[in-house]
């Protein structure tokens, strides 16, 4: 078994139009910038994939990563908790023009819906959002005298993630707070595609240290020294680059 893929382009090749794609990251921390840009590169050459439903905590910042994906018109719908950022102009403009749908989900509910999707739990009850506009239309039940809202699992066709170490069988470790949603999304997607900062041989990650076991991972592509969304935005970067 060897889950390594030689190029970013090949790694994202299976994603079709209308796919639901979970993308790891909280703001720029954990954002798989190179995988997203490879997807945009494919779209610019072939016109596909488009009409994607994207699941992430946010909805892009500046003009790179998810913001660039939205800016190209590839995203039909965002499912997220906080579609604001330091520079949210891309999502905001499309949303206010009615060109992109938004499903707003409380952050803990988003995480648990994804976890439930990966764990085979179709629905669960949470206190979050009870009595608020975001609970409208959802079943409510009382447990031990408190009211809870029923939420459903969230699954995806693909997950695009960033990890630190990855071995050929798909075991992953993450770097600091870049872990965030990635272990959950790896479980909840039919096909999980991961850019790792260093590909290692099986055995080089101590079994005790594995965060995401390889059973949840399908494709690994090595991207040494990955770009950081925050650093790109501070440099006012655009993807694709602006022509002078």
């Amino acid at each position: 078994m060897d889950k390594r893929i030689a190029s970013l382009r090949d790694a994202v090749a299976p994603i079709p139009d209308h796919a639901t794609v979970m993308i790891g990251g909280f703001g720029g921390s954990g954002a798989p910038i190179e995988l997203i840009h490879a997807l945009i590169g494919r779209f610019l050459e072939t016109g596909s994939p488009k009409a994607l439903t994207v699941i992430n905590n946010n909805a892009g910042n500046g003009h790179v990563g998810i913001a660039a994906l939205i800016e190209q018109g590839m995203v039909k719908k965002m499912i997220c908790s906080f579609p604001r950022s330091a520079d949210p102009v891309v999502f905001t403009t499309k949303y206010l023009a009615g060109e992109i749908e938004l499903e707003l989900v409380p952050q803990g509910t988003l995480a648990e819906r994804i976890r439930a999707g990966g764990a085979g739990i179709p629905a669960f009850y949470t206190p979050s959002s009870y009595g608020t506009d975001l609970a409208k239309g959802k079943p409510v039940a009382e447990f031990d005298g408190r009211s809870y809202v029923q939420e459903r699992w969230l699954k995806a066709d693909f997950a695009l993630l960033k990890a630190e170490l990855g071995d050929a069988v798909g075991n992953l470790t993450y770097r600091m707070a870049a872990r965030n949603f990635a272990p959950l999304m790896a479980m909840a997607a039919t096909e999980t595609i991961v850019q790792v900062s260093r590909a290692v041989a099986p055995g080089e990650i101590e079994p005790e240290s594995v965060v995401t076991p390889g059973i949840f991972v399908d494709r690994i592509v090595e991207v040494p020294a990955p770009q950081q969304e925050e650093a790109l935005n501070r440099a006012n970067a655009h993807y694709p680059e602006l022509r002078a």
Partner: peptide
């Protein structure tokens, strides 16, 4: 505008 909730409801 654009609604955003983050972790507040949790």
């Amino acid at each position: 505008g654009v609604p955003a909730v983050g972790g507040a409801m949790d």
